[in-house]
Design a protein around this nucleic acid. Sequence first.
DNA 1: TATTGTTATACTCTATAACTATA
DNA 2: TATAGTTATAGAGTATAACAATA
Lengths: 156, 156
Amino acid sequence: MPATGVPAAPAGQPLAQHTGYLLIKLGEVTLAIAERALAPLNLRARHFNVMTMVAADITLSQQDLSGQLGLDPTIMVALVDDLERRGFLRRERSQKDRRRYVLQLTPAGQRTLQRALTVIEEAESKLLAPLNSHEAGLLQELAGRLLAPHWPPRHT
Amino acid sequence: MPATGVPAAPAGQPLAQHTGYLLIKLGEVTLAIAERALAPLNLRARHFNVMTMVAADITLSQQDLSGQLGLDPTIMVALVDDLERRGFLRRERSQKDRRRYVLQLTPAGQRTLQRALTVIEEAESKLLAPLNSHEAGLLQELAGRLLAPHWPPRHT
DNA sequence: TATTGTTATACTCTATAACTATA
DNA sequence: TATAGTTATAGAGTATAACAATA
């Protein structure tokens, strides 16, 4: 095509032809939905992520969590502070390495995580409603394949 | 499952089972890739989006653009200021409604958009490399279907 | 010396409200 | 009165650097 012109694009939504644009906007929409679903529990999506990780693996330090979730360690401090202040988890010094914390959900934290999981799965199911179960599984698989080479991100 | 406990999850990546989490992180990764690809042109992804929209439809006002791109109108002002200052587009008052601006790419803007399009498509192709062409088309279609009910977002 | 967690702080980003000019 | 665009500014969110405790 000539250097003097840009090809005419369909007026409707020229950006919708870019898969990348769709993925970015879909990510934003999905995050907004998750935040709205968790708001009644006074939780942010990050709280849910941290609690889910801690519930699955007690041996994770705060910096392990930062790395796996792609958050700055200083943000993790504030997040864990908040969850601890609200009685959802406890910090205990690791016996093997007393610089590290071992994080552990309290019973209240486990109950809250369970409720959060319920609303998250409900929201997710609404978001995925336009897809049949085969398509939903396919999307899950494709997204996972695309993400794998880039996650966790190397912190700048 | 009992209220006193949360089901044991695979330690590897408990969040990866949530499609929503994958979509959010994939969106973040995709945006980061786009920003990195455009950085040598001194453009942000938003610049590219605005220029693409303006190239496709000259009749869009700044608030039309804000709405379609999901950005606050005040952010659009700064964006258009920047593009105008760099000689990539011009503001002209609409004849039909002199409150509105009609935005128009300059020849330099068209050339820059063309170069931006090249690097964006290159980056997109790298991102999608793990998929064959059928899968890539499928992802495009599924993402579009999921996004449609939620876009553009109703500004809070 | 290096690492975990922490604090203080500066920086970016965004949204809010108030204004003007046009309608 | 309402709308398009603008400005100033406050608020949220983030990252940077420096520090204490431990390895």
